[in-house]
């Protein structure tokens, strides 16, 4: 029982990160129908930038803020220089473009930061908290609360603000959005920037718990994609739910089977979902029009 609780805590922590990545995924997917395989690189860039600015003597909070800004800028550039110019892009070509972008960003990170493994210090004093026989670090709490906060903010942004609603309008029908005077190009840029910023926050939150390298974004990005599918592609609350479930399932599974198979468990779950209910937990079925 205690062991299960321990798995649950770790699962919820890593699941929160997946949830943020998946949320970023679905923001871009909703706004532009692009599945962004470079989402994980936003996480890596956020974490690595924060790590190196902290090393350079910049105060922690400012370093975090700048790291988010850097990652958001990368997101804007991705939209501006890779997605926007690809006019005839099909689903397959956008997949390949974003995979290319992900490799490119990884290559850039390798040049700038090298191959070494880095970590961030925890945000606050990291004395373990005991719950029964399970333990939890304050950083775990930071991750969970940080994620919860961001999910609420994002929800508010899309439900209540003009810009948020305008982005949603673009996702339903670009032409119609354009005709009612929405600047579609700007909205897409905002969506990519926002999504990259979310990724960066995820990176900064998790870096004190796991370690970071230039290649750490790949798996995180793919897991985020899994989470988005699990929850129902394009449904942002589904993405969050999918992330949490995926985190818990893989941690519990790894605990009972073998930690080496942790990633395999996650992908196995996704294959099952794709085979039996590809629309995910909260997704709707689509009707093909002829």
């Amino acid at each position: 029982m205690d062991q299960l609780l321990q798995f649950f805590i770790s699962g919820l922590t890593v699941g929160s990160i997946y949830a943020l990545v998946a949320l970023g995924f679905s923001i871009i997917y909703n706004a532009s129908d692009v599945v962004n395989f470079a989402q994980g690189e936003f996480v890596m860039i956020g974490a690595m930038s924060a790590i190196f600015m902290l090393k350079a003597g910049i105060p922690y909070p400012l370093a975090i803020f700048l790291a988010i800004l850097i990652s958001a800028t990368v997101g804007l550039c991705l939209e501006k220089f890779a997605i926007e110019p690809a006019k005839r892009a099909t689903v397959v070509s956008t997949i390949i473009i974003t995979i290319g972008a992900s490799i490119f960003l990884r290559g850039a990170a390798l040049l700038i930061w090298g191959k070494d493994i880095y970590g961030l210090p925890p945000f606050t004093d990291n004395t373990p908290i005991h719950i029964g026989r399970a333990t939890m670090l304050p950083q775990n709490l930071w991750v969970m609360l940080g994620t919860a906060f961001l999910v609420i903010v994002v929800r508010y942004f899309f439900d209540k603000t003009r810009v948020g609603k305008a982005i949603l309008a673009c996702s339903y029908n670009k032409k119609a959005a354009y005709l009612v005077g929405i600047n579609v190009k700007t909205m897409l840029l905002i969506a990519y920037g926002l999504s990259a910023a979310l990724g960066a926050v995820a990176g900064v939150l998790i870096a004190p718990i796991t370690f970071m390298t230039y290649g750490a974004g790949v798996m995180l990005g793919l897991k985020g994609f899994c989470a988005a599918i699990l929850g129902g592609m394009g449904n942002s609350m589904g993405a969050v739910l999918g992330g949490l479930i995926l985190g818990i399932v893989e941690t519990v599974g790894a605990g009972f089977i073998s930690s080496g198979y942790k990633d395999a468990i996650a992908f196995f779950v996704i294959l099952l979902v794709l085979f039996f209910k590809p629309s995910g937990i909260l997704g709707k079925g689509e009707v093909e029009r002829v």
Binding site: A82, P85, A86, R88, A89, T90, S93, I96, I97, I99, G100, A101, S102, I103, F104, L105, R106, G107, A108, L110, L111
Partner: peptide, 20 residues
């Protein structure tokens, strides 16, 4: 050497964007 990954990614993107 270290530029290999970067160049590889750049080729993939450029081809797909400009010569799909």
């Amino acid at each position: 050497e270290d530029f290999e990954v970067l160049i590889f990614g750049a080729i993939l993107m450029t081809i797909m964007i400009f010569l799909p």
